[in-house]
Every structure is written in C-alpha cells, then in structure tokens.
Write a protein that binds this DNA or RNA. Structure first.
Lengths: 374, 374
DNA sequence: CTGAAAGCGCTTACAG
DNA sequence: CTGAAAGCGCTTACAG
C-alpha cells in the first residue's frame, strides 16, 4: 500500500507538503496541490488512519456499548447513533454486551485500548471498575437509555413514568385489576425505574402489586418466557402481563401460546418499547414507544460536545403509550360507533384520570425510526 | 494516559523489556516480569492499540459491511460474526450500508483507511471500484450472504433454491395458482437468485409468472408495501405474495392490513428469512429459514484463513421451509385429525412431488440464533 | 536475559 | 510556500 512517502516522491515534493494538501492546509501553492493530487490519484493513495491517529491523538471514532444487538430497540438506537456520528465526522464502533457484564467489560476495554475519542454506553450493570475509572479519568462518556447512579456523566434517556401511568390507567379502564410486570434486571436503571413507575401507578389506582406479580427478567426473551410461566402457574394468575421490554414480551407470547391461551381473552399483554412487528402480532400489542432516533442523535451530540470541549447536556425525552388490542377491547377511536353504554368505571378517587392515550398512526409502522436520507 | 515509557521507568527496566512481558515473550527474567506487571498495575497501564497496529501492521480487526442493520437477519449475522471473531482474537467494526451503495462505499473506505485486517461484505450492489480494487489488490475479503460475480473472493451463503421449490410445492398443494413475488434489487445476488429459483419452481409446476406478479423491491419494508399495493390494484390480484426478505413481508402486511384484507383468507403471504416474530404474527408466517449463526461463523473462519495465510473455503448452506399458517390451511400435522377428504391435488405431471416440508419446533422461537455462551 | 536504536506513517512547529 | 526533523507509542532485530 502506497504511503505518504511514495506520494511525495511521485509528486516531487516533501511529505510535509503532501500532508498539507491532504489536510487542506491553506499555505500550499496551487501547483504543488495539483501535483500532489495527481500523485494521489495515480497511486490510489489512501492515508493511513492508524498513523494519523497515533500522531494526532484522536481517532475520530466513538465507541458504543449496547446491551443487546438482537434487541430491535438497541439496533435502532445504534443506527441513529451512527447516522448522527457520521454527520459530525465520526465513525462508531459497536460493542454488543448481550446483557453480560463480562462481555460489556471486554468491549469497554477493547474500545479504550483503541483510543476511541468517546464512549457511549447503555450499561448492563453498575459498571466495572474499568468503566468507572474511565469515566472519572476524564474519558468523554455519555450514558444512553440506561445509566449509572453516582457517576457524573451526561445521561440521554427516556422517562417512561408518565406513559406507564397512562398504561395502568388504560388497563384499569378496561377493568383489569390483577396486573403483573416482568421487570428488567435490578442492576439497570431501566430495570428498576420501570417497576418503580409501575408500582406507583398501581398505588395511585389503589391496586395491590404482590411480589408474585413481579417477575424477574433480564430483558431477553427466554426470561420473559420463564416469568410468564410462573405467572400462569399461580393459583390466581394475573389478568395482564406488562413486559418491561419487547424481547421479554416475545418470550411471554411464547409461553402464553405454549399453553394454548389467547391474548387478550385469557390474559392481556403490554410491552415497553414499540417495534414495527407489534402492529402485526396476534393481537396487535399495546406498547410504550420511545423516540429512539432522537435519543441516539442527542446522545451523540452530547458526547461530541464532551470531546470537543463544549459542555454537554443531559436529555430526557418522554415516552408515549400506543394503545392496540392486546389488553382488551379496542380503544374507543377504533370502534365504529359507541355500542351502547360502557361498563361504568369509577375513576380512583384522588387521582386525576389521565388523558386518553394518543392514537397510533396506523399507516406508519416505524414510529421510532428516523430514516432521513441525510 | 500512561505509556510504555512510564511503565519502564516505574519498573526500572527498558521499554523493550516491558514490551516483551506484555507480549509474553519467553526471554524475560521472572524478576523483570514481576516488576513490570506491578508497574502496569500501579499505573493502570493499557497498551495503545493504535501504536501497536502501526508498528505491527495488523489491527486484529475485521470489517463487516452489511446491507441493513435494521434487518433482523443481518443483525443476527452480525452477532454471529462478532462472536466467532472474538473467539479467534479479533474485533469487528460494523458498517451499515442501509442498502445504499454510496453508504456502502463510505464504510468500505473508512474500514480500509483504518487498515482492518480483512473485510466481510454483503454487497448492496455490484461493488464500487474501491471495493473491487481492494479485492483484486489482495485485501483479505469474504462475501457473506450476497456476493459479486467475477470477483475471486470466497463466498459464504445460503442456497435457498430447494427451500423455494418446497415453498411452491406447498402453495401448489394448497391450491394456489397465482403466485407473486416481491424481489430484492437485481443488483444483488440474493435479489436475482430468489426470483430465479421461484421462476424455475413455478415452471416446474406449470404455473405462469407474469411480469405483473414480479414486484421490484429493495429489501426494505416500504418497498414491500408499495409492491403489494400494486399487486392488490391488479384486475386479477395474486393469491399469494412471497416476499424475498422479512422486511418486505412486513411492508406487505402493512399494505394488506391497510386495505382491510385478511391473511390467508384474502391473500396468502410467505417470506424469505425467518424471524422470531413470525411465530406470533397474525397469522404466523410461513418462511424460509437460514442458518444465520453458522453462516456468520463460517464467514469469519474463511476470512481469518485468508488473513493468516491459510486457504479459505467457500461455504454454501441449505435453507429450509418452515410452514406456518399464512398460506392457507394449517399443515397436516397441525390438524387434530384428517377432517374428511381433502381437495384432490393433481401433482404436476413431469415433476416429482417434493417431500413434505419439515415441522418447525413450536417451542423454539429463535431457530436461526445461536446463543452459545462461549 | 536485556537495552539502545530503528522505524511503522503520519502531523506540525520551526526555520527559511 | 516549503522542507527537514522531531515525535506519537509501540515492536523487534541486533548486539551484548
């Protein structure tokens, strides 16, 4: 592979001059520029980014450590991250932790060794010493989606509490009283926050949330299946299962189907994180949608702010409830006309009845994707 | 960040010695080793991979250029690739082309500039000069899934012809005669091969395949929607739509649903590439499954063979039909008992009736995933 | 077993 | 505007 020396020789100038034209340095004569460009062309020269990085101490690369690539939510997030990074002149290297702290640590280490300019992470756990040290040591870092308490790093995430409250209101309105949740790992903020929001919303409606109705999952399908099986084995199984992410909802569906049960007649199902397939499942699944694209973009902007010495901002975006049919009767707007009197629902005394959840656009199966052809 | 010099100073040895212990070179005294290791510990030293790469001319990194990260098929492929690469001591950098040749080229260029040791690509088109030159210029390269004719590079892919033949047999057996296909881009091998296999299977059953029944898609959801709308606008719409990938099937479903039509009563649907959600769609979708995990693993092995000077092997894996309910009556084995005489099906004269497609395991929603905790 | 030194391919003051 | 030279952080013959 041709090096800058070869180009210099071919063009009859010094390597310094070649470097200058390659980097658009102003003080280069038109003549020199032309000759260098010609030489580059002739030799098919491409600058060695490794050498450049060593010299300039920057790689123009962002590391992104996500919890699970097979989770469409993270896949969309990764796509948005790459998109925004590219727009700002950075590449991104993705490390997939598969929800395993050891793998997460492996990727953080690898990324750090490669001297990425900054790290975007959606932590699987409380963070290894390596990651915590990096954060404290001044490695530009931003948390996306999940974060770690006590680490002073900007956080870009969704706040699902309001949407979860809307969900509980929706379920309550449908007459459901025994609601169960499949939680994510307690080691993650999203794992804890979603149960917490659910617990509070339940309390607001005066509904009990027994321990048996809190399944412990790990955000992956298999755990959703297991938790659901346990729910179904209960003497008094829940009327609704709320899965804290889309993969656990998939597992729940597997478990429900394996017993020959039907959704929502035998048991209702809702999920955190909306994905295009939820429109076409049997039945369509009520879900809480995040603005994944915006999240990814904002995270990159924050990280690049860190890197380039500006002060980054944490960002919290709202999530929203998308009502479909997996929890019972179709939402009001989907009925052709009011079919007689509805079962009267006492709104819980102290609580204001939440506004009706917004109507999903039926023709737009990618609510959270941002496919701008930038 | 501490450098090797700092470690040398701390340990009271030369940088050469530090380097030797870091690289497990045999000729280092036990004493020196201990002191170096201690110094590494004290300083929290981590070798600079950039400098090492510049010096050794290898990055221990593989580039993977895939057509679309949002496509679960490629996402699974990427996961398998990373898994195998890690097992062999390599990292992988993913470039997402989004089915756009310009983006593909951008990533190939970036990856090459970073001096990755080898390139795994699933080409979106016939290949840019840059990619073709790299292949000819001796950059270790392997094609996965899709390939480019005339380029002497190992290819690791599935051959779907037999499964497509099985699919047509299945549809024929169900009484369908007007079958349409949503093809992938003609610039891709999978785009061409799947229509071609379909065409041949149709011919074997004496079925016509009019041009109006060949929709042109680009492997993304939106194109599946558009193609399906055109089919439905026909005076004589097809009885079956076969989408050449799972995203176009999603689009097809959107279009069908938007018209208030039902699958399979009004129109049947089948897809290439099986994904976990196909079990839970309404109705469950008949699909052709690839061994995505194996594909990814084999591709990495071939590429690393190239890189490390062994002779790589091309690999072709079979795909298999997974019958579900989206094309009509449930498969035989799903019926409780034979319900009276079935509509008599004349097997096409010259053609041997293909064996009954295999039964999908209903409890295994991840047929193509390989989640070994290696 | 150990160290001094060269060199990987760049960029960038510095001097002219 | 241009070039010689230093140096980024490593590895690796080479000599001892």
């Amino acid at each position: 592979m041709a090096s800058i020396k070869d180009v210099a020789a071919e063009a009859g100038v010094s390597v310094a001059t070649v470097s200058r034209v390659l980097n658009d340095h102003p003080s280069v004569s038109a003549d020199a520029r032309t000759r260098v460009l010609a030489a580059v062309e002739v030799l098919g020269y491409r600058p060695n980014a490794v050498a450049r990085s060593l010299r300039t101490d920057q790689t123009r690369t962002l590391g992104l450590v996500i919890s699970d690539v097979l989770n469409p939510y993270f896949t969309q997030l990764a796509r948005a991250v790459e998109e925004q990074a590219r727009a700002l002149g950075y590449s991104v290297i993705i490390g997939n932790a598969d929800e395993r702290p050891d793998l997460q640590d492996h990727h953080v280490r690898t990324l750090l060794d490669r001297r990425i300019d900054g790290l975007l992470v959606s932590p699987t756990d409380g963070g290894s010493p390596l990651m915590l040290d990096a954060a404290r040591g001044g490695t530009p870092m931003v948390f996306v989606d999940r974060w770690i308490e006590g680490v002073v790093v900007p956080v870009v995430r969704s706040d699902g509490s309001a949407a979860i409250h809307d969900l509980v209101a929706h379920l309550y309105g449908l007459g459901h009283r025994r609601l169960a949740i499949i939680a994510g790992p307690a080691a993650t903020t999203t794992g804890r926050e979603r149960v917490e929001a659910f617990r509070q919303a339940m309390a607001a409606y005066g509904l009990p949330l027994p321990d048996a109705y809190i399944g412990q999952g790990d955000f992956q399908a298999e755990s959703g299946r297991r938790a659901t099986e346990r729910f179904l084995d209960l003497n008094e199984p829940p009327e609704v299962v709320f899965a804290a992410d889309n993969l656990m909802a998939l597992g729940a569906l597997d478990a429900i189907r394996a017993r020959g049960l039907r959704v929502p007649d035998d048991i209702a199902l809702a999920a955190f994180d909306d994905i295009p397939w939820f429109v076409h499942t049997d039945p369509p699944i009520t879900a809480i949608a995040q603005s994944t694209g915006e999240l990814g973009h904002a995270a990159v902007r924050a990280l690049v702010d860190c890197i380039e010495g500006r002060s980054p901002k944490s960002v919290t975006l709202p999530a929203r409830l998308v009502v479909r049919r997996s929890c019972g009767e179709p939402a009001l707007h989907e009925l052709p006309a009011p079919l007689g009197p509805r079962a009267p629902q006492e709104p819980p005394a102290p609580q204001e009845q939440p506004a009706l959840p917004e109507q999903p656009a039926p023709m737009e199966p990618f609510p959270a994707m941002n496919r701008s052809q930038s």
